[in-house]
Structures are given as C-alpha cells and as structure tokens.
Design a protein around this nucleic acid. Structure first.
Length: 577
DNA sequence: GCCGTTTTCGGCCCGACTGTTTTCAGTCG
C-alpha cells in the first residue's frame, strides 16, 4: 500500500502541531507547515519524487524535510513523527479545529487536565474545572462550550457560489452606507478559491467605528463575534463568519491587498518590499521615499511588478512572472462564446431543449452544446440509441427553425466510459454527433492505475471531443476517484482531446492546480457548466474565474471560438485540432 | 527548519481583539 500525498501533508501538519504544543521554535514549526503547503500544492507526482529521492530544488523543502518525506514515502512511516506522537491519540488533533483554542491553551488543558479529545474537553468544561486553569476564566470556558456546540451543527466550509452570493448581498448594503467611499470583498472569495471558510470585507471610510457598529447591527449579523473601532466579526445564519475591516481611503489599497492574500503571496511581496527598504503592512508602506499609492496596482508598480490578478495570488510563480513581465493575459468571462455539456429534460435536466437554447441565447452565447446522459446511466434517465438519434433530429430541426449565423445548438452526448474503458455508444452513432463528452459515472472505486487506463482508452477514441469532470469529485461531499492527472494530461495533448473545466460549483473539475501544466502541454480547455437548468448556465462566470486561477488564457479555451470558428473546428479530424 | 543578487548565519510579518490580567498572553487572520 503506497503512501498518498494527503498522508504526507497530514504527517507534516501533525508534526507542526506537536512541535507547537512543545513550545518549539516558531520558525521551525512554520517550516513544517510550509512544507505541508508545498507538498499539497505541488503540480506533479510529489509522492513518486519523494520515493525516488528527487525532491532536490523544490522551494520550501530543505534537507531535513526531504529526508523525512523520503522515509515516509518509502517505508510508510516516519520515526520522528512516531516519537512525537506518543501519548497523543488521533482524537487529540480535533482540538485544534475549535475556535478560540490554540496550541498554548491546548497544551495547558492536556498537561493539567489530561484533555486529549473533544469528549474529554467537553467533560472538563461541563465540570467547570477549565475556568480555574491559569490563563483561563469563566468566559473562556463558556466560549469553548459554544464552539463545541457549533462544531456539531455547522460545517465551517462553503462552496464558492454560496460565498459569492452572500458576499454580493452584503457588499451592496455596505456600498449604500453614506460614509463608505470604496468597498470590496477580499480573502479567498476574491481569489476564487473553490472552497471558502469566511468572508472578508474592506471598506474605505472617514468614520470606521461607525461602520463596524453598522455592520454589527445588520439583520444578516446573527451573532457578533468581535467588535472594535476598525474591525468587526459576525456570523451569518449559515454559520459563515464575516470580517469587516474599516480603514481610511489612503489605507484602503493596502488593506485590500493584505486581506486578499494569500498569506504566502503576501509574505513574498512583503519581503520584496523589505529589499527596497520599505516595510509593508495592511495600512501603508513605511520607510524612506515611499511612493504615493492610490490603488492596488500602484502597490505592485512600486515594487517593480505588473499587477497580479487576485486569482493568481497563491505564490505559485506569479510574483516571478510579474517581475519578468510574463504574466499571462488571462481569460475574461466575456470571452466565452458558447459552451458544451448541458442537459435537458430528455435525461435528468430540469429545462427543455427549447428553454435551454433560449436561455443560452439570452445570455449572449452563440452556441450551446447539448450532452444528455447515455444509456448506461439509467439513474439519470440516460438516452437509448433510438432516443439519441431522435434528439439529433430534433436539434437539427430546431436549428433550421430558430438557428442561424447568430446562434445554433450542437448535438452531442455525455457518453459513459464503461468500466473497461469502452464507450456506451458505438462509433457509428458517435460519428453522427457534432461532439461527444466522455465521463465516468460508475465503478468509481477502481485502483488509480486501472481508472487512468480506462479514461485514456476513452480519450483515444476519435469521436470523443472532450473528457468530462475528470475526478468526479463533489466538493465537501465526496473525494474524486483516483486518477493519474499527469498521464491524463499527456494523453490529452497527444490525442488532442479537450479536457473539461466543469464549472458547476459542486465540481470545479479538473482542479485549477493542474491547468497551468495542462496549458503548457498544449491541452485545450472547455469551460462547461454541466447545466441541469437554465439558471445553471450562469456557472460559466465561476468557470472563467477558476480558469484564471489556473493561469488559463483565452487561446487555451475552445469555447472562446466564435460560432463560425467552432463549426469549422468541430469538422476537423481530432488529430488536426 | 529554510533561505541567500545585502547572507552559509541570522533572520524569519505583525496588528486587532479578547480575556485575564494590572501590563500582557493567546488567538486569529
């Protein structure tokens, strides 16, 4: 049984926590934590590299971490970690997820009261003995109890679409306040992360205390967590925490930059400022001859950098590129001219073919690809050979009646990739379609190697235009199936098979972390909403943001082609695309 | 423990808020 990337990350993070408990040098702790980040975000087969002792040159992994990762990847264990863990059960690590509890307090609880799990902590609080500990009091104990209760009822992570929806409503309210000059959402929502933990708002105002008070008393603020003169934290009905920072108009660009993050991006930018002799915090540059700053772009300019779009701020090479002037011109959502992979009532969609077509046209698209499920997905009312043939006719008739140079429907199918890698329809039928999306919907538990071969076999078919939701993940609900991304990307490049960026916010699949690599290999992307209703066509907007996060440019995305270009492109043999 | 176009040693981000304190430690972002 080989070690997974997740396990490597978990071990490094546990080491960081255990060292923290022991009061180790905070920078050593940070090194382990950053090592975990690097392993988690590395776009390549980090497990194989660790196994083969080829981690040399990866920033953030020094001699010590390289050796430890090698030991872990080859033996499945790490002596250093095992020794640290003696006396701490798995349940101990749950304690770190509680609000208001950090390593210092957990260390005290563990040392004084033998607390080593949520259950023993709850018992200690109920018995009232936590309040008597040094550094603890009645309020701390009550807060721990609240936090324990909340952990039970509310998930603390939210999908991007939920976050954006909440943020837009609140932003509108903030902008209507007469003392607000500028306002923006910051944080991971602004960076279009697929999962968001809280919302951050920045407002520029001459009266910050008035704004934090205003924020705390809004109807959406179901609970006020903290309120001061410049900062206010509240919780929404949904359980989502929202932080407001109220700053002066001069401070605004710095606050917006700082709270947009990511933390790693900020640290790197800050050290760049230090090299210029300036210190950078959330309010200003300080030092000799500091430049005048009016907006975020001025901050980057002052440091000799091109403006870095928020989506790219993950410290994955964007600062180097901004320095060299080689940041890509990213896709804009307005560049999308049409889309593929959409369902109708013929399979499991909620809207008719006609309604979907009109919805797409109203959205300003020039074409819409219909791809209902195939016959091996009876749970989704998959189409039989006959029903698909009939649908192709219906689409042709629709185009004759309603289509033209401005808009048309493309006939396709979301063809199941069967367990063997064979497709659910034979080539003769697929050849009658304008396009075909191949997706896995069953036998999700195959070993990685077998799953990869299965998908590759489907991609080798000349009639498969694109690969649907590569991992089948459902964010916050189900992990994706095991599949080797490198091999799939290489195969897509060779066979000229497009890979879908499924922009249904439940999926965002293939993950943004892989697109830069795919793009560099010449793989084309199709941004598809997997829409099951007319409204869901609007997922395209999220698709564009997440594609940007993956460094994707207009020319990397097939559905930026105009209708005429797309018609010509689809007629080309796959190998010539 | 990591890193280096000021470095192989000496740095490594720091401010706001809360609660327990009486001047500050812990947590969070």
């Amino acid at each position: 049984m080989s070690v997974t990337r997740e396990r490597l990350v978990e071990v490094l993070e546990e080491i960081a926590l255990l060292l923290e408990i022991q009061g180790e040098n905070p920078f050593k702790i940070r090194a382990y934590r950053q090592g975990a980040e690097v392993v988690s975000g590395y776009d390549g087969d980090i497990v194989a590299l660790a196994r083969d002792n080829k981690l040399e040159g990866i920033k953030g992994l020094g001699d010590a971490l390289r050796d430890k990762l090698h030991e872990l990847a080859t033996t499945g264990e790490l002596e250093f970690h095992k020794k640290l863990r003696v006396g701490y059960p798995d349940s101990f690590f749950d304690l770190f997820e509680l609000d208001g509890l950090g390593p210092k307090k957990i260390a005290v609880l563990n040392r004084e009261l033998k607390v080593d799990s949520i259950i023993t902590l709850k018992a200690a609080c109920d018995a009232g003995i936590v309040a008597g500990l040094p550094g603890f009091g009645a309020k701390t104990q009550a807060k721990i109890l609240e936090s324990l209760a909340r952990r039970v009822q509310a998930a603390e992570a939210f999908r991007l679409d939920i976050a954006v929806q909440a943020a837009e409503g609140i932003l509108e309210i903030l902008r209507m306040h007469p003392e607000v000059l500028r306002a923006s959402v910051a944080g991971s929502t602004r960076r279009s992360k697929e999962i968001v933990r809280d919302l951050d708002f920045i407002v520029a105002t001459p009266k910050p205390a008035e704004l934090t008070a205003f924020f705390a008393t809004q109807e959406f603020a179901k609970e006020v967590i903290a309120q001061g003169d410049t900062k206010c934290s509240i919780r929404l009905e949904s359980g989502m925490q929202c932080d407001l920072r109220a700053v002066s108009n001069d401070q605004y660009p710095f606050a917006l930059f700082y709270f947009t993050g990511s933390k790693e991006h900020n640290v790197a930018i800050r050290s760049r400022a230090l090299k210029k002799g300036w210190s950078l915090n959330e309010y200003a540059f300080t030092g000799e001859n500091v430049p005048v700053i009016r907006d975020e772009a001025d901050i980057y300019r002052a440091l000799g950098l091109d403006f870095v779009p928020p989506e790219l701020r993950e410290n994955r090479g964007e600062i180097e590129a901004a320095d060299e002037g080689t940041l890509p011109r990213l896709l804009e959502w307005e560049n999308l001219r049409g889309t593929f992979h959409n369902h109708t009532t013929e399979s499991d969609g909620k809207a008719s073919l006609h309604a979907m077509a009109e919805g797409a046209r109203e959205l300003g698209l020039q074409y819409l690809g219909i791809a209902d499920h195939s016959k091996s997905s009876p749970q989704a009312n998959g189409l039989s050979v006959e029903r698909l043939a009939a649908q192709v006719e219906t689409i042709a008739a629709w185009n004759r009646e309603h289509g033209g140079k401005q808009f048309r429907l493309f006939a396709g199918s979301e063809v199941d990739i069967l367990k063997s890698g064979a497709l659910d329809f034979d080539d003769d039928l697929l050849a009658t379609l304008d396009f075909a999306v191949a997706s896995v919907h069953n036998a999700l538990t195959l070993e990685e190697d077998e799953m990869t071969k299965r998908i590759i076999k489907a991609m080798e078919n000349p009639y498969i235009t694109m690969l649907g939701h590569l991992t089948g993940r459902l964010l916050l609900r189900r992990d994706g199936y095991a599949v080797n991304h490198e091999k799939i990307i290489d195969c897509a490049a060779e066979t000229r098979t497009v890979i879908e960026l499924n922009c249904n916010p439940k999926r965002f699949d293939m993950d943004w972390r892989w697109w830069h690599r795919a793009r560099d290999k010449g793989v084309l992307c199709s941004i598809n909403p997997d829409a099951h209703s007319v409204n869901q066509l609007q997922f395209l907007r999220f698709g564009a943001s997440v594609a940007r996060k993956g460094w994707v440019r207009r020319e990397d995305v097939v559905n930026t082609k105009t209708l005429a270009e797309m018609e010509a492109w689809l007629k080309l043999p796959k190998g010539k695309r």
